[in-house]
Amino acid sequence: MLKIVSGACAVMLLGAGAAWAQSAKPNDAQIAHIAYTAGELDAKAGELALQKSKNKEVRDFATSMVKDHRAVNEKALALVKKLKVTPQDNDTSKALTKQAADKQAELKKLSGAAFDKAYVANEVAYHKTVNGALEQTLIPSASNAELKELLQTGLKIFQGHLAHAEHVAATVK
C-alpha cells in the first residue's frame, strides 16, 4: 500500500513538475538518477522494438533511441564521477521504472503493426512527459552548472526525438 501511494505521488509530481519544484526540489544526486533512469528505460524500450518490429521507420527510430540515450547517459556517468556525486534513487525514478515495466509487459504481448503503433504512441507520450519534467523541474532545480548544461543538451536531443516519434507515428497509423 505504501509503495503504491508513493509511486502514484511521484507520477503526479512528474506530470505537474512546477508544483514539485515548489514543494520538494530534487537535489543533484536525485536529478542525475532520474535523468539516467529515464534514458536507460527508453533505450530498453528501443531494444524491445528492435527485437519485435520489422518496420524500417520504426527500427530506424528505435536504433536512434538506443544510441542517443546511451550516449547521453555515458556523458552523465562521466560527469557524476567527475563531480563525485552518487546518483540517489528516489520515488520519481521508482515510479518511472514501474511504469516502464508495465508498458514493456503490455508491448511484449503485441506484434506486427499493433506493436509498432503502440510502441511509437508510447514514445510520443514518454518523451512529452520526460521533456516536461526536464523543463519544469529537473533543469530549474539543478544546482551544478555542468549538470544543468548536460540536461539542457539532453532536452534538445529529446525534443528532436519527440518530433521524430510524431513523424513515425503518422506513418504507422
Partner: peptide
C-alpha cells in the same frame, strides 16, 4: 533537416 532530430 535531421532525420533523427527533425527539430534541426
Amino acid at each position: 533537416y535531421c532525420r533523427y532530430h527533425p527539430t534541426m
